[in-house]
């Protein structure tokens, strides 16, 4: 993982250093995990549950995103997801659809960086 890649991630708000510490310094592994993050279908599940009006289901999916993103230092994503989890936890769905789209935007931004450096 070169410095340019790391700096680009830092620039969009990813806590690269903490995350690399968590994978005991294995930068290669961190790169792989970032790619794996996009294999996860939780964001799609979240969207589906919201359109079904299933708040508990939406909460579970958002919660999963929050956990994984937290572990990977994706503070940029959790900036949106964490407040969303709280709203869902309270049993509300207010403004959540919009937040899902903001999350999607954060995903896309991250994906662009990954594609540029790890593609």
């Amino acid at each position: 993982m070169n410095d340019d890649y790391k700096n680009a991630l830092r620039a969009i708000g990813v806590d690269v250093d903490t995350a690399i510490g968590r994978v005991v310094g294995k930068e290669d592994l961190y790169e792989k995990l970032l790619l794996m993050f996009f294999d996860d279908k939780s964001l799609e599940t979240l969207r589906a549950k919201i359109s079904e009006g299933n708040v508990q289901g939406a909460f579970d999916a958002a919660h999963t995103i929050k956990g994984t993103a937290g572990n990977l230092g994706l503070d940029n994503i959790n900036e949106v997801v964490m407040p969303m989890v709280e709203i869902l936890r309270a049993g509300s769905g207010e403004g959540v659809a919009e937040m899902v789209e903001q999350t999607q935007a954060k995903y896309d931004e991250l994906k662009a960086v990954i594609d540029k450096y790890a593609g």
């Binding site: 968590r22 994978v23 005991v24 294995k26 592994l29 995990l33 996860d40 999963t64 956990g67 994984t68």
Partner: peptide, 16 residues
């Protein structure tokens, strides 16, 4: 854990 990423992270830490 249902999330593969989380499992990998924990495995990496513990398998030493």
């Amino acid at each position: 854990d249902d999330q593969p990423i989380n499992r990998i992270l924990l495995r990496t830490l513990l398998e030493d």
